[in-house]
Each structure stands twice: as structure tokens, then as C-alpha cells.
């Protein structure tokens, strides 16, 4: 892609005690790109995402957001996190706040926006995810799919430069997955810069500009969906995709 690079990671390594979660991972995300990371569970995909927005510190390597090194010591990490949106597998909505307040609180308390302006912005984002009519509901009154959409609105409200999705539909009942994926597809269509970790291959194939296959803490292969799915280069990629498409009932050429 020719657009400027929004996020760049260089040689990231993360170690927990004896385990190497990932080693020397480098990647770059261009503006407007949708990157989907696939791979077996436990291969460090989620940890990688949490390192990208500095929730988890890396042990070595650098991360640059729009050219600025955010892994530098002098950086105000909280301020950086305002610019990177994150959506979690178990939604993590603030339980004591309504949907509207969940979306607003970052605006009023972190960005110090005046209340009317924040309310307007919050309702705009809730409409964007199709939940304006549920603004006054509490998370416990919403379905999983609705909660996740509110979580997306909450992240969007901060006007992030890039959105990170950590297995956003893995905790959802099957019939609720679609509504979340279509919000995400819409965002991608609107040229939001996104990095998505998911097992939803259909979404990956349809929406991704580039797919990264990660296994055992390293990037095995990456490329545009058609290339990766039709002509996977690496044997492990072939094996993984074969197993996945077998699961979904579609036989692809090996």
C-alpha cells in the first residue's frame, strides 16, 4: 500500500519467564489498511496486540506511531493510548455506566471535552454501530453482540489513528457474530486503519488487505488474502489453512 505508515513495529520480543511469547517480530501498517492476524491459539497474537498499544511492555524492540517512537522512556503512555483504539474479546464495558456514558467517559474525563459536545460525539458513534436506541441501557441489559458494538463505539469516540481488535467475536454466540463483523467491515470500508486478530476466516478473506499468519511466536507468512489462501508458500500455512477450511466445510486446493 502506498499510503503513509501509521504503525511500525521493529524486532519486538516478549518473554514471560522461561517462555518466549514472540521474538523479533516486525510489521508495518499503512493508513487505511486492514491487517488480519491468524494462527493457532497461544501463539502470542493477543500479547502482540497488547504490546502495540503499550498495555504490556515489550522486552526489546521499538514501536513507532506515525513516525514517533512510542516505546521510548520519555513517552507518556496514557497519551499514546488515546490514539490507539482497542476492542477486547470480552468487551470489558464499564458495568456501572450506560452505553452512552461508556462511550462518553473517555471524552469527558480523558480528553476533557465539554459535556454537550461529548454527548453529541457519543451518540454519533453509537449510531454508527447501530445502537443509538440503546444509549440508556446498561451493559448487563445488552446482548454480547450489542456490548461489543458499544465497545467499538467507545474506542472510535477517541478518534484513534488505528484500531486494534483482539479476537472480537471469539466470546460471542454464533448468531451474534455477524452484527459485529459487519460493523468492522464497514469501518474497513471507510478506510479505518485496523489490525484484527481473529479466527473468522470469512472476514479475513473478504475484508483484509493483508493477512499475517503467526505461529509459535513468529510470522510464518503474510500476503494479500487471495495469495495466502490460494497459493500459500509455507507448508505450515498450507496445513493450518487446510484444517480451517475443513472445519468450515469448504475444501480448498492443497
Amino acid at each position: 500500500m502506498d499510503t503513509p505508515i501509521i504503525l511500525q513495529a521493529i524486532n519486538l520480543t516478549k518473554i514471560y519467564g522461561e517462555n518466549v511469547i514472540f521474538k523479533d517480530i516486525s510489521l508495518e501498517v499503512h493508513k487505511g489498511e486492514t491487517i488480519v492476524i491468524i494462527g493457532p491459539s497461544g501463539t502470542g497474537k493477543s500479547t502482540l496486540l497488547r504490546c502495540l498499544n503499550l498495555l504490556t511492555p515489550v522486552d526489546s524492540g521499538q514501536i513507532y506511531l506515525e513516525g514517533r517512537e512510542i516505546t521510548a522512556h520519555s513517552v507518556n503512555q496514557d497519551e499514546v493510548r488515546q490514539q490507539i483504539g482497542m476492542v477486547f474479546q470480552n468487551f470489558l464495558l464499564f458495568n456501572h455506566l450506560t452505553a452512552r456514558d461508556n462511550v462518553m467517559i473517555g471524552l469527558t474525563k480523558v480528553k476533557k471535552m465539554p459535556k454537550e459536545k461529548a454527548l453529541e460525539k457519543a451518540m454519533h458513534e453509537l449510531s454508527r454501530v447501530g445502537l443509538a436506541d440503546r444509549a440508556g441501557h446498561y451493559p448487563s441489559q445488552l446482548s454480547g453482540g450489542q456490548q461489543q458494538r458499544v465497545a467499538i463505539a467507545r474506542a472510535l469516540a477517541m478518534d484513534p489513528k488505528i484500531m486494534l481488535f483482539d479476537e472480537p467475536t471469539s466470546a460471542l454466540d454464533p448468531e451474534l457474530i455477524g452484527e459485529v463483523l459487519s460493523v468492522m467491515a464497514q469501518l474497513a470500508h471507510e478506510h479505518m486503519t485496523m489490525v484484527v486478530v481473529t479466527h473468522e476466516m470469512g472476514f479475513a478473506r473478504e475484508v483484509a488487505d493483508r493477512i499475517i499468519f503467526m505461529e509459535k511466536g513468529s510470522i510464518v507468512e503474510q500476503g494479500p488474502p487471495d495469495e495466502l489462501f490460494e497459493r500459500p508458500q509455507h507448508p505450515r500455512t498450507r496445513e493450518f489453512l487446510w484444517k480451517i477450511t475443513e472445519l468450515y466445510g469448504k475444501k480448498e486446493k492443497k
Binding site: R81, Q82, F88, L92, L93, I105
Partner: peptide, 25 residues
């Protein structure tokens, strides 16, 4: 801990997270 993580993910510092998210709950 998830509530703290989510609060930090929208750019709150720990004090803000405690004050607006954790302690009220």
C-alpha cells in the same frame, strides 16, 4: 483487572481509572 485494562486502553491513567471506573463499582 479487565476494567482497569479497558480504562487504560482509552487513555486513562491509573488514578483516573481508579476514580471513575474501579472505585465506583
Amino acid at each position: 483487572g479487565g476494567q482497569m485494562t479497558a480504562a487504560r486502553a482509552i487513555g486513562m491513567n491509573r488514578m483516573q481509572a481508579l476514580r471513575y471506573i474501579i472505585i465506583p463499582q
